[in-house]
Structures are given as C-alpha cells and as structure tokens.
Design a protein around this nucleic acid. Structure first.
Ligand code: FES
Ligand code: FES
Lengths: 142, 142
DNA sequence: TGGAATCCTGAGCCAATCACTCATGATTGA
DNA sequence: TCAATCATGAGTGATTGGCTCAGGATTCCA
C-alpha cells in the first residue's frame, strides 16, 4: 500500500520546475542535482511525463524540459495516475469497466471503490501550483 | 499502489465468518474451501487477526475461529491496518510522529497526508457487518 | 563542420516483497 | 489413543521496484 518512488521523484521535480519563472528549458541534470536524485532514473520518469503531456522537451545543447501547461492547470491526481499507472487499491477497480464476474456479489468491491473515490476526491482539486508554493516558501524563507 | 491479497482474503473470510449466526467455532479448512482460498495461507492471515484481537481461536477437535467482537464493532479501517501493516501511501506518514527531517519544507508530504486522511475517513465508519450483508444477500437471493 | 550538450531508447540487474508451500509441533475432544 | 484442529517457522519461486549501463539521435555553437 505504498506509492512508488517514481511518484515522489516526479512530484518533487515537477514542483521544482514549476518554481522557475523563466520559460527556458531546464536540463534534467540540473533538476536531478538540485533535488538529489539519480539523473538516469529521473530521465525515465520524465519520458512518461512527456508522453502524458505534462512537460515538453527541447533536444540538443541548451535543451531541457519545460512545463507543458501552467502549474495551476496540472492536477496532482492526474500526475499520480500517470506516475503510478493508476490510482486504484485493487486491480478490479482500476478501470471503470471491470471484467470481474463476481461484481454484483463481491464483498470487498465496495471497499475498494470507496477507497478509490476518496483518494480521487482528496487530490482531485489539488494543483501543482499549490504544492510548488511550499517549495517556494522554503527558498524564500532562508 | 495496490493492497495485498492478504487484505482481500482477510476481508472475505471475515465477512463469511460474520455471516454465520452460530457461535460455534468455524474450522479454517471450511472457510478456506467455501471461499476458494489456500488453507495454509489463510492460516497465516488468521494468526495476525487473532493477535490483533479480531478473532479468537479454539484448538483441538471441533475447534476453529470465532469473531472476537460483534461485526458491527469491527471497523474495516482497523482490519486493513492490521492486514497491511499500515494504511499509508508513503512511509513518512505511516506513524503520527515521523522522523523525516524535511517535514516543514517537504513538497510532497501534504499530498501523502491528504491521501491518508481521505482513506481513513472513507472506511473509518464502515463496519464488517456492513460489508458482510452483501454476502448474506447473495446467499439469500438464490 | 565538428564537437559538446542535451534528450531518447532499450536492455539488464540486484534486492526486496509477495503469495504462497512445506514440515512439524502443540492442544483438545471423542 | 487418535484424529482434528490451531501454531510456528522456515523455505521458495515469481514478480516488482529502483535503479544502472550502453549507446544513439538531435540540436546549438564556435
Ligand atoms: S474484486 Fe472484482 S468484483 Fe470483487
Ligand atoms: S516525505 Fe517525509 S517529510 Fe516529505
């Protein structure tokens, strides 16, 4: 019942990215270093984020990654769903159209459903801008 | 981000146990068979449940397991916490007194906390009796 | 035009965890 | 005494997580 390290790294790096006002692309090496993460692992993560449309990349010298949308428009829920694959406590409630034959009689399904709904509600309105501001505050306060 | 099979099996078996009106102990073999689970694996699970005080056991012939409390008094949240170890999306929010030095500056912590709270709220009032009634309905309806 | 800086791609690897199984002992009822 | 049950602990095979490694493709700049 743990989220993977991908989620943490992804969120942290994106928050750091959101903290930059400049529109210039930020090289991954820099992000990884300031956040203390493995550059190569972060690369994997950013590939996913790019394919999911959260960041866009610029290749070549002076290249790097940029947020593809404004931080206020990026929902933490969507991020976690891409980073985790899905945000379901049980396989059977991962998609909206489950194939489980036991659906109408299943004792546990209601539990999984309720868990999933509650998580969605909890972070369904939280934006990247919101959590990035914490980081900004850190930078400012010392 | 998945719950383990222990949780599913535990919930199902307990629900089945709650469905029995009789106060006689139910042997594990029977529970395992009717639920289609591995007897030995279920045994491990019931050991945990016993240590956590959810069921009590009777050894010897005609022995078995009984619910230690009324199903209405058993919270799904408590069950899942025992079965999973804890119900936190991230290690750092598993206990109420984390040792993470970054607490006041952490970008992600608020996300983990909110997730955990929401899960707790979602199933914090759900009881075993509640989910067991689904199973009862199944038995009755055919 | 030739690096150097970057992203891009895919494979591989090691340790941990999961979902069990196996073997054996202890307790109790008939 | 014997069979039915729980109790305990070790072992195992597959999967996953969290990376690393190796090399290629694209772009900027001197
Ligand atoms: S878990 Fe699929 S219907 Fe119960
Ligand atoms: S995860 Fe521990 S403080 Fe951020």
């Amino acid at each position: 019942m743990r989220l993977s390290a991908r989620s943490e790294y992804g969120l942290r790096a994106l928050a750091a990215l959101a903290g930059r006002e400049a529109a210039e692309p930020v090289p991954l090496r820099e992000l990884a270093h300031t956040e203390g993460l493995s550059e190569q692992f972060l690369e994997q993560i950013f590939m996913e984020l790019r394919k999911a449309g959260f960041v866009s990349s610029t290749r070549g010298a002076h290249g790097g990654y940029t947020l593809a949308r404004r931080p206020e428009e990026i929902l933490i829920f969507d991020l976690l769903e891409t980073l985790e694959g899905d945000l379901a406590p049980y396989e059977c409630v991962a998609t909206d159209q489950p194939e489980c034959v036991q659906v109408p009689f299943c004792v546990t399904r209601q539990v999984w459903l309720k868990l999933r709904e509650s998580m969605q509600q909890a972070i369904g309105t939280m934006t990247l801008a919101e959590i990035a501001s914490t980081r900004t505050w850190e930078t400012v306060s010392r």
